[in-house]
């Protein structure tokens, strides 16, 4: 007669035990969202930082001394732009350098100064967008000095300050996200410890009997750790699945609202396996928490 071995300890009848997968599921959901946020921020920071690192901006201010003839002032600026462009295009590592048209400069200023800006009313600087070769090692100080020598007052902005601030800010957000993941995972492990202690009390008589018929502490611990592993996997897979669906939904909703808003909410392909590891981490941690709790408690039994 074929018979399936029944569970030695009736965990299914333990109310606290039945709740554990749900508890782990909720915590995995929160941890999954926090982890997805941290991963998306990392991708966003990397993309932005890379975009800024591959470009520089040269700003040539209009002449500061009074030039009676505006046309002469414009001609002076045009000449400075030509000189700077020549220096830039000759510089190794520079893929291209293009001056921004007056309309483009005004478009950049429009959010601050409004759309009714009269080009003639303000002495606007000339801007040159510089694209760099991938991985180009350009010393911005040396290049900036050459540009300043050719066009007095011209400055070279390699976006280093912006980039450093942005990366620092996003880095801080990532640390907060990862800290949330760590706290939630530890809280899940603590929940498993309490559930296991509850189980030890509920099934005290069964455990005592198992000892008397020759069960080792390891045998009893295996019953609990197997149950904790199942709870961790069930809760972990459920929680991370809902978290993944939530992230996908948020990404799609943000994409529908506008491309710029969507980019911080999009995970890279390589991020999904990291998210998928969360149930395994939850299960492993539950397993270890249960084993340690049982082994420590049994040491106090006769």
């Amino acid at each position: 007669m074929k018979r399936r071995a029944e569970a030695v300890i009736p965990f299914g009848r333990d109310p606290a035990g039945r709740l554990t997968p749900w508890l782990i599921g909720f915590m995995t959901f929160v941890a999954g969202l926090a982890l997805a946020g941290a991963l998306a921020l990392a991708a966003f920071a990397e993309g932005w930082s890379q975009g800024l690192a591959d470009s520089m901006t040269v700003q040539i201010p209009p002449p500061t001394d009074e030039v009676a003839d505006p046309d002469a002032a414009e001609a002076q600026l045009d000449a400075a732009v030509v000189d700077v462009l020549r220096i830039l295009r000759e510089a190794p590592g520079v893929a291209g350098a293009e001056p921004l048209a007056g309309e483009q400069v005004r478009a950049l200023l429009e959010p601050w100064l409004g759309g009714s800006l009269d080009p003639a009313s303000l002495p606007l600087p000339r801007l040159i967008a510089v694209d760099l070769d991938d991985g180009a090692a350009i010393d911005p100080t040396v290049l900036g000095a050459r540009i300043a020598a050719a066009a007095p007052g011209a400055t070279l902005d390699d976006h280093g300050l912006w980039r450093a601030r942005l990366v620092a800010f996003l880095g801080a957000l990532q640390i907060v996200g990862l800290a949330v993941v760590a706290v939630v995972v530890l809280a899940a492990a603590t929940a498993v410890v309490f559930a296991t202690r509850g189980g030890l009390l509920t099934h005290h008589e069964t455990i005592e009997l198992l000892h008397l018929i020759g069960a080792s502490d390891g045998f009893i611990a295996r019953q609990f750790q197997r149950e904790a592993l199942k709870a961790g996997l069930k809760g972990g897979v459920g929680g991370v699945s809902v978290a993944a669906l939530t992230v996908l939904g948020l990404g799609q909703a943000a994409a529908a609202a506008g491309a710029d808003l969507a980019s911080p909410l999009v995970l890279r392909l390589t991020d999904w396996p990291v998210l998928a590891l969360l149930p395994a981490v939850m299960a492993l941690l539950s397993f270890l928490a249960a084993r340690r709790t049982v082994m420590r408690s049994l040491k106090r039994m006769p």
């Binding site: 071995a5 029944e6 030695v8 198992l210 000892h211 020759g214």
Partner: peptide, 29 residues
């Protein structure tokens, strides 16, 4: 303990297990 068999006063059978599984317990452990 595996070399000592005990018949307890109140039997101490595990009610969630069948007769077969109760008897099989010492061999399983």
């Amino acid at each position: 303990r595996r070399q000592i068999g005990v018949v307890f006063q109140e039997f101490r059978l595990l009610n969630h297990l069948s007769a077969f599984e109760n008897v099989a317990l010492p061999l399983r452990v």
